[in-house]
Amino acid sequence: MEDRVEATITVNGTRLTRRIEPRMHLIDFLREELGLTGSHVSCEHGVCGACTVRVDGEIRRGCLTLAVQADGRTVDTVEGLSDSGELAVLQQAFHERNALQCGYCTPGMLLTAQALIKEHPEATREEIREFMSGNLCRCTGYQAIIDAIETVLRTPRTEGVR
């Protein structure tokens, strides 16, 4: 059997050190070891985006990142970004527009959308669709998601959007 590897990761602002099986991907580590079940496992081959988390401020596929690769890095999940209030405006827009049904893709959608809002605040509707095209939703038909993001982009900046 492989040896576990020690890694120190700052997850949602809390620094923690764990001995981790190298084969464990980040999404399983967050879910199984830390009980952060908000990010979801769906395809485990990088297509669906349900496992999207933030590593050092940038969105990543949690299933295509080993937990040990996060050693020395900062990881943020939907739970932490909900508590910090960073996602609040987006979450409210998703709620009001019913931009989710089963909710399984939603944490990944929110993290991707938040990256768009930070990086590309002037995005057109077409560009929103393009940016979001790596996150699968099987319920909504996407329009409500695009509408919600567009609403946030078009609303003058308030607290909570950074």
Binding site: S39, T77, E79, F94, N98
Partner: peptide, 23 residues
Amino acid sequence: QSVPRANAKRLLQGRGAYTDDLK
């Protein structure tokens, strides 16, 4: 009326509980 549904709130924060989340 177009009432946003209450149970969406937990899902929006990643605080739902799907069967695979149970331990």
